[in-house]
Structures are given as structure tokens and as C-alpha cells.
């Protein structure tokens, strides 16, 4: 497209790759101005990398399943087992790495479903503020938001069979209303912006106004919230698995590992401490990265030429 215009009208537009390059450079500058964001990004990359390459990285990949080695059961952290072994003699480090897989899988899937649904409902309710549609959508949202989230997830997960899929369903059901609220607030103010008025006065269709005019201006907070939410979904997932409503043993899950460890406290403290630390570091990483994404998406002085 660019090439055609260039030849036809002699447009001195930058080539596509050059524009991408300058965009990446600018975004990286905005992201990395806060060094903590970079720390967050590194943590996230390490966790994602570990999860994806788990079978390669983990020192004892077979410890992630049904494996028993009573000879080494309850070994304290040492050179051979960095985080020690559990009551079955399984390497905790390896199990944590494998547990990241389930946790991230759950976070990605939950957000992949909850975000589009929540955003869509919020857009509609916000643009048609004051209408019947708005009332229905927002009251339902309020009802969902008024139930304590963990309780709601616990209830849903308890009714269904306890496994990873159902835990995900439970978390998804409680997650979309947050996005509806977020987008609703932005859409109600954006609908009064002059550029939306202009589009209406030109006679643009509703889909155009919702998805081309309003939605792009909501993306920055949505992405920021998503980055933060990955951490929180992992935490909720861990909570569910802590009470036995997530991934079932012998497949490792962070919450389940913490819960198993509590029975051996304080003698086998590493069984609890390391999975707990893994949860904490994960959330910290995603939170710090989320801040960086917010800085990066903010339209500001750096976008002027």
C-alpha cells in the first residue's frame, strides 16, 4: 500500500519497517523509563520461558507426575535439589516450573474469554448510557461484583467437578464484570468527545463508532489491567487449588503444593515457602510489568514530533 502511494503521489512517507523500528524504540523508551518495569518484564519472561521450556529446563522433569522416591523424601534445599524435595521425594523446583504451565494456561484462557465479553458489554452499556440496555447490563454486572470473588469462584468450582477446566470456568465467570465496569466508565465519557460527535454527525454506523472510535481509546487501560490481572488470576487459581478445587494431584499446581506443604510445617518448610514465593514473585512481576505497559500506552509529550 505504501509503495503504491509513494510512486503515485511522491509521498515521502517512511518505509513500513522504519516506522515499526521507530515505534518500537519509542515504546521501549517509555516502558523502560521506570527500571522496575524492566525488572517486572524480566521476571515475566523468565516465568513464561520456564513454563514453555519446562521439560528442558526442569532438572527432574519426571518428578512433575506420579513419582515416588522415599529415599530422598524431605531433603532440605541443597545443590542437587535447589528447593528441596517433598514428602514423596519429588524435586520442588521442577514441580514449580511445571506448575507455572497450568497457572499461565489458566490465566491466558480466562482473560481470552473474560476480556472480550466484558469489554463488549461495557462498550454497549456505556455508549447507550441511560437506555434499557445499559440498565440491564450494568445491574447484572453489579450483582456479580457484589459477591466476593473468591466465594463466587469457590461456589461455582464446588458445584462442578474439581479440575483445571472447571476452575477456569469459575474464574472466568467472576472476571468479566471488572472489564465491563472499566470500559463502561471510559465509554460514557468518550461518547461525549467531539470526535465521537463528529462521527455521529457524519452519519457513521454504530459498529464503526463502537469499535473504531471508542474502543481504540479504551485499549490502553484494558491492556494495563490485563497485564496486572495475569498475576491476580494466578493468585485466585492458586487459592482454588489450595482448597483442592483446581488441578488434581499428581499434576503440580502452586496452591496445591502450598497446601500440601502446610501439613509438614515447620519441619519441611521448603515445601511451603518456595511455592509461596513463586506465587508472590509471579504477581510482583506481572504488576511491575503492568505499570510499564501503562507508561508505554499513555499518549504524552513523547508522541509529539
Amino acid at each position: 500500500m505504501n509503495v503504491r502511494v509513494q510512486s503515485k503521489q511522491g509521498v515521502p512517507a517512511l518505509s513500513f519497517s522504519a516506522r515499526v523500528k521507530s515505534g518500537v524504540k519509542k515504546n521501549w523508551y517509555k516502558f523502560s523509563r521506570n527500571k522496575l518495569s524492566v525488572v517486572g518484564l524480566i521476571i515475566v519472561l523468565l516465568i513464561v520461558g520456564a513454563a514453555v521450556l519446562a521439560p528442558v529446563i526442569a532438572p527432574y522433569p519426571h518428578h512433575a507426575g506420579k513419582f515416588v522416591d522415599y529415599a530422598n523424601a524431605g531433603t532440605a534445599p541443597c545443590a542437587k535439589y535447589w528447593f528441596g524435595t517433598d514428602n514423596f521425594g519429588r524435586d520442588i523446583f521442577s514441580r514449580i516450573i511445571f506448575a507455572f504451565r497450568g497457572a499461565l494456561y489458566m490465566a491466558v484462557l480466562v482473560l481470552a474469554i473474560a476480556v472480550p465479553v466484558g469489554v463488549f458489554l461495557g462498550l454497549i452499556a456505556g455508549y447507550y448510557q441511560g437506555s434499557f440496555l445499559d440498565t440491564v447490563i450494568m445491574r447484572v454486572t453489579d450483582i456479580f461484583l457484589s459477591v466476593p470473588p473468591l466465594l463466587l469462584a469457590l461456589a461455582i468450582a464446588a458445584v462442578l467437578k474439581p479440575n483445571l477446566t472447571n476452575a477456569m470456568i469459575a474464574v472466568t465467570v467472576m472476571w468479566w464484570p471488572w472489564y465491563t465496569r472499566l470500559v463502561y466508565g471510559m465509554a460514557t465519557s468518550l461518547r461525549n468527545e467531539y470526535f465521537v460527535k463528529s462521527a455521529e454527525l457524519i452519519g457513521a454506523g454504530r459498529l464503526h463508532i463502537l469499535f473504531r472510535e471508542i474502543l481504540p481509546n479504551c485499549l490502553s487501560p484494558i491492556f494495563t489491567k490485563m497485564a496486572l490481572d495475569v498475576g491476580w488470576v494466578i493468585l485466585i487459581g492458586a487459592s482454588l487449588s489450595f482448597v483442592g478445587l483446581g488441578e488434581q494431584p499428581p499434576t503440580p499446581a502452586l496452591g496445591q503444593m502450598v497446601s500440601d506443604g502446610t501439613r509438614y510445617m515447620p519441619d519441611l518448610w521448603w515445601m511451603t515457602v518456595f511455592p509461596s514465593l513463586a506465587i508472590a514473585v509471579t504477581i510482583l512481576g506481572f504488576n511491575l510489568m503492568g505499570d510499564g505497559i501503562r507508561d508505554m500506552m499513555a499518549k504524552g509529550e513523547y508522541d509529539r514530533e
Binding site: E193, Y194, F195, K197, S198, L201, I202, R212, E213, P216, N217, L219, K299
Partner: peptide, 15 residues
């Protein structure tokens, strides 16, 4: 047609 006062907010910043 109309031209609005504030050229900052009458053009969609994401387009």
C-alpha cells in the same frame, strides 16, 4: 456539517 472548537478532542487520537 460542523467544525468544533477544540482541535485536540475533535480528532480521534488513535486514528
Amino acid at each position: 456539517q460542523i467544525v468544533f472548537q477544540d482541535p485536540g478532542s475533535s480528532l480521534n487520537p488513535r486514528q
